[in-house]
């Protein structure tokens, strides 16, 4: 298939970026979206032009490195997948595809489609962990966990920190990410011990990093490649109030 691509190009964080139009012919419908960009980049290199910079790593949908807004949707026109799992058969011959980076003050642009998502790492560093003694691994069955809570914690732990929630939210809020991390740890006995400090510190850090405020629109839930639900945001709210009183 032949495609018209409208891609955001920006030299660095200080430069003014702009959309550049490209034509790409004979794209295989079986190729992934990132492979399509690889082909375009090879053409650009052959023409002695600067290739398009974008994040990617595992290309198996589990690392959370890739991410771009395709035709207005983070990770493109499909549900529960990352960009690397998006295939060109989702598009038609002659389509124009608009590709933009994540847009958020907390995710400053580095180059082209690559943004700095270090803000998420800072959130984890702040309190997104459990303190444990080093040594040999404890016996797994020594701390009983109810199946219901184990399932909820596992669902929350599916978050890969790709940032699609922030990208999709009209307020660039990180509440779904923080909600997932707080839920994942707080639902388990090991995480309950530091639950209060964790939620207070993570919310304070989230505000400090310049993310927006949640307005419960559900855009994050709709675009999350791992199906993290809004109930995690409600749990974050509950945990926050509980820690405050």
């Amino acid at each position: 298939m032949d495609l018209k691509l409208k891609i955001w190009r920006q030299k660095d964080s200080q430069s003014r970026g702009k959309f550049v139009n490209y034509k790409l012919n004979d794209v295989s419908p079986d190729s992934s979206f990132l492979e399509m960009l690889d082909v375009l980049n090879e053409e650009l290199v052959e023409r002695n032009e600067e290739p398009i910079v974008f994040d990617h790593d595992c290309r198996e949908g589990i690392c959370g490195a890739c991410g771009m807004v395709i035709n207005g949707r983070p990770h493109g026109p499909d549900s529960l997948i990352t960009v690397c799992q998006l295939h060109m058969r989702k598009f038609k011959h002659g389509d124009t595809i608009v590709i933009e980076p994540w847009r958020a003050r907390a995710f400053p642009l580095i180059k082209d489609l690559m943004v700095d998502r270090y803000a998420f790492d800072k959130l984890i560093q702040e309190s997104g962990f459990v303190s444990v003694n080093t040594g040999s691994a404890p016996e797994a069955n020594s701390i009983p966990v109810k199946k219901h809570y184990a399932d909820l914690a596992m669902d929350a732990a599916a978050c890969i920190g790709c940032g699609a929630c922030v990208a999709a939210c009209k307020n660039a809020s990180a509440m779904l990410f923080v909600g997932a991390k707080v839920s994942h740890l707080t639902l388990l006995p090991q995480g309950k011990i530091e639950a209060k400090e964790r939620v207070l510190q993570m919310v304070a850090k989230m505000d400090e990093l310049g993310f927006g405020n949640c307005t419960n629109t559900g855009a994050c839930e709709a675009e999350c490649p791992k199906g993290i639900t809004l109930t995690n945001i409600a749990r974050l709210n509950r945990e926050y109030y509980y820690a405050k009183v």
């Binding site: 608009v98 847009r103 009209k170 809020s173 927006g212």
Partner: peptide, 18 residues
Amino acid sequence: NWIARPKRYSKANYSNTS
């Protein structure tokens, strides 16, 4: 919230939101 997204998307966000 406006400050948190200094540059808006050129294409409107389609998503299954309220």
